[in-house]
Design a protein around this nucleic acid. Structure first.
Lengths: 184, 184
DNA sequence: TTCTAATTTGAGTCATCGCTCAACAAAAGT
DNA sequence: ACTTTTGTTGAGCGATGACTCAAATTAGAA
């Protein structure tokens, strides 16, 4: 990387990398494939990024950030808002959702840095969802709320996974139905 | 592939492939890496298998088969048995569980054959779990039972995913707690 | 216009990929 | 013992991977 310019080109490269990662997976995300999709030559690629890995990590970062938009609003959301926001994320940004689930997970197994980020992100989600649930249903104990949220988030991730495999899967319907579940 | 013998060698190769796939992911599963781990030379590899892909698909097949052991016993299990069998699978064979979740999913996005097998396998699981649940709780309607099973399996998959990222995660505890959930 | 710095280029390096095959070794028949 | 079948070897093939860099091009300041 020689300097800080060419930002529009850098954006095109990251966009191309995201598209390839989401549609064809990590294996297919070669420098050549990314450069072709971004209409850039390898020299430009390496003028702007230190390595292929840098670009891929940037896409994963985008995905993690996009999972929970507006995290600064913590404290005001209802649990339905949080679920709906996640549904919107999966429906509107299937590319980032795919990256989140596939690259995030397989990368999490290989790469300790990615793993740490995924785990941290998950515990932040649990805290946020639990606070919202307790606000909506104050009759629940803290433990019961956290158990419920654990199950809710696991099921949301499971449905996301299913949605990635089967584009016809009614993700929104199933996700919202989860709000009707509770410990018996 | 020249003949059908050298089966012990073939087993060693598949074992090595499974280990590498589970610990280091698809990217790391090169023919050289597999051969080194199996203490075999590439010539022998290609004497026994048509391609690298053949071996990887065999590992994925093993994983899918191992998810639901003894499927011929359909009709007698309780829902708790099915969940416990899955818990045992994840705890006892984390290697195959990792392959199931990571390679199965990322492969499912790329490869139509893998995708079809994963989807088929999932609908078989839904049918089996739903039958068991209706047997245990005849007061549920078919639709409610299937909704419950959908959520149960999604959550199990989500927990599996979480377990793959965090080895300290109490998978068995969370999985069994799911049996206490129901539609309200 | 002219000079300079920012940006892009593409041929090229070296390593590694999946895979092949002629030769060799070990068993198994006969 | 000799032949055949079965299994293994490892050098090496062409293709492609990530990545480099001197040269060309472009853009903005002077």
């Amino acid at each position: 990387m020689r300097n800080r310019a060419g930002e529009e080109t850098a954006v095109r490269i990251v966009d191309a990398a995201r598209q390839i990662l989401s549609e064809a997976g990590l294996e297919a995300a070669t420098v050549k494939a990314i450069c072709d999709a971004a209409e850039v030559r390898p020299g430009s690629f390496y003028n702007l990024f230190d390595s292929k890995e840098t670009v891929i990590l940037e896409v994963i970062r985008q995905a993690i950030v996009a999972v929970d938009p507006d995290p600064e609003r913590t404290g005001r959301d209802h649990i339905t808002d949080l679920v709906e926001a996640f549904v919107r994320f999966v429906e509107d940004r299937p590319d980032l959702a795919r990256v989140y689930i596939t690259v995030g997970v397989s990368g999490g197994i290989t790469d300790a840095g990615i793993r740490a980020r995924m785990i941290r992100h998950h515990s932040e989600r649990v805290a946020r969802f639990t606070a919202a649930l307790l606000r909506d249903r104050p009759n629940l104990t803290d433990a019961a709320a956290e158990r419920t949220v654990d199950a809710l988030l696991a099921a949301l991730n499971g449905y996301t996974l299913q949605r990635m495999l089967d584009p016809d899967f009614d993700f929104a319907g199933h996700a919202k139905a989860l709000l009707e579940m509770e410990p018996r």
